[in-house]
C-alpha cells in the first residue's frame, strides 16, 4: 500500500508522487519532492501554523498530515496563481497593509485566512478570521498589520 504512488493535485497540477514512506508528512512531500518551498517548516508540531496549506479547500497543518492519508486531495499552496480568488484576496490585503516582515509565517497566514474564506465565502466575519489566524504565530509584526489586513478582508465586500 505504502509503496504505491500517491496522487495529489497541487495548485491545479496533477502529480503522482512515488516512493513515499508511510511516515512522510505532506509538508515534506510538497517541499522536497515537489520543490514547493513556499510552504514553510516551523515547529513541526502543529503549534506555529507556518506549514498550513489547503487540503480540499480546508486550512490544514501539513506537518501533522501524512501524505498517504490524503490521496487524491486538491492541495493549494502559497505558490498558487491568481485563479484562487480567496488566496488572491488575502494576498492583496496583506500587501496593502504591509502585513508581513520576515515573511516566514506569511504563507501559513495567507492559507489559513484563505481557508476560512473558502469555508465561509464572503460572509467571513472579522472574529472568525481572527480566530483562524490565532493558530498562526508571527514574531515580527506583533500582528497589528495582520489584524488590519483581516479587517480589510472582513469589510471589503460589504
Amino acid at each position: 500500500m505504502t509503496d504505491a504512488a500517491v496522487p495529489l493535485t497541487v495548485n491545479g497540477h496533477a502529480h503522482s508522487v512515488r516512493d513515499v514512506p508511510g511516515p512522510e508528512r505532506l509538508l515534506d512531500t510538497l517541499r522536497w519532492r515537489l520543490g514547493l518551498k513556499g510552504t514553510k517548516e516551523g515547529c513541526r508540531s502543529g503549534a506555529c501554523g507556518a506549514c498550513v496549506v489547503l487540503v480540499d479547500g480546508r486550512a490544514t497543518l501539513s506537518c501533522l498530515t501524512l501524505t498517504h492519508d490524503v490521496p487524491g486531495a486538491q492541495i493549494t499552496t502559497i505558490e498558487v496563481g491568481p485563479e484562487d480568488a480567496a488566496v488572491a484576496r488575502v494576498r492583496a490585503a496583506f500587501a496593502q497593509e504591509g502585513a508581513l516582515q520576515c515573511g516566514y509565517c506569511t504563507p501559513g497566514f495567507v492559507l489559513t485566512l484563505a481557508g476560512l474564506l473558502h469555508e465561509r465565502g464572503r460572509r467571513a466575519a472579522r472574529e472568525e478570521l481572527l480566530e483562524a489566524a490565532g493558530g498562526n504565530l508571527c514574531r515580527c509584526t506583533g500582528y497589528a498589520a495582520i489584524v488590519r489586513a483581516v479587517e480589510r478582508l472582513a469589510t471589503e465586500d460589504r
Partner: peptide, 12 residues
C-alpha cells in the same frame, strides 16, 4: 471543542 488547538488543527 473550539478550545482544542487551532482552527487548522480542528480541521483534522
Amino acid at each position: 471543542v473550539r478550545n482544542v488547538g487551532s482552527v487548522a488543527l480542528r480541521q483534522r
